[in-house]
Design a protein around this nucleic acid. Structure first.
Length: 361
DNA sequence: AAAACTATCAACCGCGTAAGT
DNA sequence: CACTTACGCGGTTGATAGTTT
C-alpha cells in the first residue's frame, strides 16, 4: 500500500521562500499558532504544501531560532551528544536551544564530520579509524614475543581489534611510541591517557572487559601491550603490578556526579550506548584522576566504593599536565585550528555538567 | 576576468510511526 | 484489526556564494 501524498502537489510552489510568503506564514502562525500543517497553507493563502510550511517555520521563521556561527561550547555539545545518540539530530537539537535539527545536521556534515576525519576519527563510531592506526606495528611488536600474545586468540578474536575502546587505547599507545623521546611527557601521558582509557573503557557496564574476555582477547592482552611498551622503555613509570579493576565500575565524578548509580539507568541501558567518552577525570580536558576519586560498583544491587589506590600502583598524574589545551575552552570565537586542536583531545570528552543522560533513554 | 571548483545550507523527498476512524 | 492521515525525522539535493586556478 502506497503512502498517500501529504498534499496535492499540483500547482503548489516549490523552492526558496519569498519574503511575502514568509510574512504570510508568520502572520498566520502568530494568530493561530503552529499545527494542522495540512490546512495551514490554504488558510494562510499560501501556494505551498503543509510540509513545506512546517519546515520553513521550524527551520527558519521560528522566533526562538539562534542564527550565526556555532560556538565552541555548542560544537563540543554536538560531538558529545552525537557520540551518544548518533544521527538523532532532533534529539541533539532539543539540547541546543535555538538550533534546529537541520542546522545541526548541516553543520555536522560540513564542519565537524570533516574535521574528525582529518583527525583520523571515524565520525560514525567516534573511534580512531583503522586505516589511521599503525596496528601492524603493535601486532608486530607483540607477535615477536609469543609469550605475550596468543596468536590464535588474537586473530580469532579479530572483533576485539575493532573494539573502539581498544582502538582508542592503541591509538594512544602508538602516539606515545612516537613521543618516546620525552620520558617525562611519556610518563605523564601514560597516566593521563592510558589509565583513563583503560578505566573509562570499563565504565559502561564493564563492556570493554566483557567483550575482550568473551572474544579471548583479554584485558590481559591490553596489559601485555602496556607491558611490552614498558619493556620497550616507553612506560617507565608503569609498575608490573599494574592491574585493571574487575569490578563493574561506574563514574561518579566529584564534578558532575554522572553515573549509573545515580542516573536512573540500568546497567543494560548504559551498556547499550555507544562509547560516550565518559572518563574518570575531574578535568574534562586533561582527564587527570584526582586522588580522592572513587568509583562505585553497582554489583549485587549495592553500592560499593572502589578505591583506585588499591588497584593502581602508578601515581596519579599531576593536575596541571603539559600541553594542556584548557585555554581554548572559554573562547567563543574559536578558530578552526583551535577547534582541531581541541579535537586532538577528543578521547577525553566528558558529559558536561547539567546534561541529563537519563533524558536520552 | 572568467572558468572551475568547493562549501554552505535551505529545501525537498521518502520513510516510519502515532493517532484517528 | 485494518486502513488512512498527519506529522516528524533523517538523508539527500541543488542553488548560491565564496574561493582558487
Amino acid at each position: 500500500m502506497g503512502r498517500a501524498p501529504c498534499c496535492d502537489k499540483n500547482g503548489l510552489k516549490k523552492g526558496p521562500w519569498t519574503p511575502e510568503e514568509d510574512l504570510k506564514l508568520v502572520n498566520y502562525i502568530q494568530k493561530h499558532g503552529p499545527g494542522n500543517w495540512r490546512a495551514l497553507p490554504k488558510n494562510a493563502g499560501l501556494q505551498r504544501c503543509g510540509k513545506s510550511c512546517r519546515l520553513r517555520w521550524t527551520n527558519y521563521l521560528r522566533p526562538d531560532i539562534k542564527r550565526g556561527r556555532f560556538s565552541f561550547e555548542e560544537e563540543e555539545t554536538i560531538i558529545q551528544l552525537h557520540s551518544i545518540l548518533g544521527n538523532k539530530w532532533s534529539a541533539i537539537a532539543a539540547r541546543l536551544p535555538g538550533r534546529t535539527d537541520n542546522e545541526i545536521k548541516n553543520y555536522w556534515n560540513t564542519h565537524i564530520r570533516k574535521r574528525l576525519l582529518r583527525m583520523g576519527i571515524d565520525p560514525v563510531t567516534h573511534a580512531p579509524r583503522l586505516d589511521f592506526l599503525d596496528l601492524s606495528s603493535i601486532l608486530g611488536s607483540s607477535l615477536c614475543n609469543p609469550t605475550l600474545v596468543n596468536l590464535s586468540t588474537l586473530l580469532g578474536g579479530s572483533q576485539a581489534l575493532f573494539n573502539p575502546d581498544f582502538l582508542r587505547l592503541a591509538a594512544t599507545l602508538m602516539s606515545l611510541k612516537q613521543e618516546n623521546n620525552n620520558p617525562d611527557l611519556l610518563t605523564q601521558n601514560f597516566n593521563e591517557n592510558i589509565n583513563n582509557q583503560l578505566f573509562s573503557a570499563q565504565l559502561p557496564n564493564n563492556q570493554f572487559q566483557t567483550q575482550l574476555s568473551q572474544q579471548g582477547f583479554s584485558t590481559e592482552m591490553v596489559k601485555q601491550l602496556l607491558m611490552q611498551a614498558n619493556a620497550d622503555g616507553l612506560l617507565s613509570n608503569m609498575g608490573t603490578n599494574f592491574e585493571c579493576p574487575t569490578n563493574t565500575a561506574t563514574t561518579t565524578t566529584p564534578q558532575n556526579n554522572i553515573g549509573i548509580a545515580n542516573s536512573g539507568l540500568s546497567e543494560n541501558d548504559f551498556a547499550s550506548q555507544q562509547p560516550s567518552y565518559l572518563h574518570c577525570g575531574s578535568n574534562p580536558l586533561v582527564g587527570d584522576l584526582p586522588e580522592n576519586l572513587h568509583f562505585q560498583s553497582v554489583n549485587d544491587g549495592g553500592k560499593k566504593d572502589f578505591d583506585f589506590d588499591s588497584t593502581l600502583s602508578t601515581p596519579l598524574s599531576s593536575p596541571t599536565p603539559l600541553n594542556s589545551s584548557s585555554t581554548y575552552i572559554n573562547s567563543s570565537s574559536t578558530t578552526e585550528d583551535e577547534k582541531e586542536s581541541y579535537c586532538s583531545d577528543f578521547f577525553k570528552f566528558e558529559i558536561p555538567e547539567g546534561l541529563d543522560i537519563n533524558e536520552f533513554m
